[in-house]
Simulated assay, not measured.
Amino acid sequence: MGKGRITKEHILDQAFEFASQFGLESLTVGELAKLCGMSKSGLFAHFNSKINLQIAVVEQANRVFLQRVIAPVRVENSLSYQEKIHHLLDNWMTWNHSFQGSCMFLDAWKDSQDDELQIALKQAVKQWITYLTIQIQKGIEIGEFHCDLDAKQAAFELYGHYLSAHLFYSLVGKEESSARFWKSVETLLSGWHVSNK
């Protein structure tokens, strides 16, 4: 790996950590240059604009999300799809709680805008919802979940519970929001399972 690539990866690691704690919109070339011990011009040369930097951080966040949330479940071949989804959700909530209960993607997403950054954020969220939907659909196909379960609707409902937990974290804190999230998720998953017919 070339020196330039190593430097860029170091910059993105620092940028990701900063954005995780303070939000993507707070990230500036000047602030990041200080964190990396670089000049603004030296750092700017890697990205050419603030929005390119922010998009690169979203892409970095996607890679970290894959490593922390999805990859650990992919290697567990013996799990049922209900167990896989449970583990995915557990990893997902752990991911969010590592950022003080917030979600970098949702916090920076402004639905009324349609610039390159917003498109990248929307795509990141869409990819995750699609992955969840695929796991639910596979559970239907092997007969673990009810054959008449609508995978897209099921993913919609799961994400709705997540959004509620995201909001309640700010209102009542981690312990209560997590307890309510898991209670609602367990009820949902139980209703999907064929053994409960």
Rank of each mutant, 00 (worst) to 15 (best):
M1K: 14
M1L: 11
M1A: 14
G2K: 11
G2W: 14
R5A: 13
K8M: 13
E9W: 09
I11P: 07
L12V: 07
A15G: 08
F18E: 01
S20G: 14
E25G: 04
S26E: 15
S26D: 14
T28D: 03
T28A: 06
G30E: 12
L32D: 07
A33G: 05
A33S: 11
K34I: 00
K34L: 06
M38C: 04
M38Y: 12
K40F: 03
S41N: 11
S41D: 10
A45H: 15
F47A: 03
N48H: 15
N48K: 15
S49E: 10
S49C: 05
K50R: 14
I51M: 10
N52L: 04
Q54W: 13
Q54P: 00
I55V: 15
A56C: 13
E59F: 14
Q60R: 15
A61D: 15
A61H: 12
R63H: 11
V64C: 06
V64D: 06
V64S: 03
L66G: 04
R68T: 08
I70C: 07
P72S: 08
V73A: 02
V73W: 10
V73C: 06
R74W: 03
R74F: 04
V75W: 05
V75D: 04
N77Q: 12
N77H: 12
N77F: 12
L79G: 05
L79Y: 13
Y81D: 03
E83D: 09
E83L: 06
H87I: 00
H87L: 14
L88T: 01
L89E: 01
D90C: 07
M93R: 05
W95P: 00
N96S: 09
N96E: 10
S98A: 13
F99T: 06
G101R: 01
S102F: 07
S102N: 11
S102Y: 08
C103M: 08
M104N: 07
L106C: 08
D107N: 14
D107V: 04
S112P: 02
D115N: 15
E116L: 11
E116G: 15
A120P: 13
A120G: 12
L121D: 06
L121E: 04
L121Q: 07
L121T: 05
K122E: 10
A124G: 10
V125R: 10
K126A: 14
W128F: 11
I129M: 11
L132P: 00
I134P: 00
Q135F: 02
I136E: 00
K138E: 14
G139V: 00
I142A: 00
F145K: 03
H146P: 04
H146W: 13
C147N: 14
D148P: 05
D148M: 09
A151S: 11
A151F: 02
A151N: 02
K152M: 07
A154P: 02
A154C: 04
G160L: 03
G160M: 03
Y162R: 02
S164E: 12
A165I: 02
A165K: 02
A165T: 01
H166I: 01
L167W: 07
Y169A: 02
S170T: 05
S170F: 15
S170P: 01
E176G: 00
S177C: 08
S177H: 07
S178M: 07
S178R: 13
A179F: 12
A179R: 15
A179W: 12
R180Q: 13
F181I: 00
F181T: 01
F181S: 01
W182T: 01
S184R: 12
V185C: 01
E186Y: 12
L188M: 10
L189I: 05
G191T: 10
S195A: 13
N196S: 13
K197M: 09
